[in-house]
């Protein structure tokens, strides 16, 4: 029950960035609702998996690949290219804050000189950014890599 409440709060706060960024990408009005549902679904799925102790990279991969398959269904149904829903839906999971920490760390490394603690921050955050980003894109591309293999989806 407690977990369900957490998930609902998570889903509520995840649909807002999905729709916000979908509007920056000028997703058609009728499709915004799908971005909202997708964003809430993917982020709360990742939250659930991480709650059971799965590392963030694998949880992200699972969430984004299920989003990829959901997007496949929607895109066949509405004859609309998949990135329209899927990219906006996974925007809440993009590791932006890790990425900026990495680069700010590099800037600090230049101005403040080398230190082991700083280097640790840079390497850990940088690697996490790369792996999460790879998991996100790979998960989204999974349907076209595994099932369609070069044929057009719509």
């Amino acid at each position: 029950m407690e977990l369900l409440k957490l998930l609902i709060i998570d889903a509520w706060f995840a649909w807002i960035p999905a729709v916000g960024f979908a509007m920056v990408f000028n997703v058609p009005k009728k499709m915004l609702i799908y971005c909202a549902v997708g964003g809430a679904f993917a982020h709360s799925l990742r939250h659930l998996l991480m709650h059971f102790g799965i590392p963030i990279e694998w949880a992200t991969l699972a969430a984004s690949s299920s989003m990829g398959f959901v997007g496949l269904y929607w895109s066949r149904k509405h004859l609309i290219p998949r990135p329209v829903f899927t990219v906006a839906s996974i925007i809440p999971m993009i590791p932006g804050s890790y990425a900026f920490t990495t680069i700010i760390g590099i800037v600090e490394l230049n101005s403040g000189g080398y230190s082991l603690e700083l280097m640790q921050v840079i390497v850990e955050n940088g690697l996490r950014t790369l792996f999460i980003l790879g998991a996100l894109s790979f998960g989204l591309a999974l349907p076209s890599i595994l099932i369609y293999r070069g044929r057009p989806i719509v």
């Binding site: 960024f21 990408f25 990135p83 990219v87 996974i90 925007i91 993009i94 932006g96 804050s97 990425a99 900026f100 980003l133 790879g134 996100l136 894109s137 790979f138 989204l140 591309a141 076209s144 890599i145």
Partner: peptide
Amino acid sequence: VLLLVPGFPLINAVSDMLK
């Protein structure tokens, strides 16, 4: 500052390379 994360280009970059 998270509104300035170039999310779309990053995702496009990796999926271009994958394909």
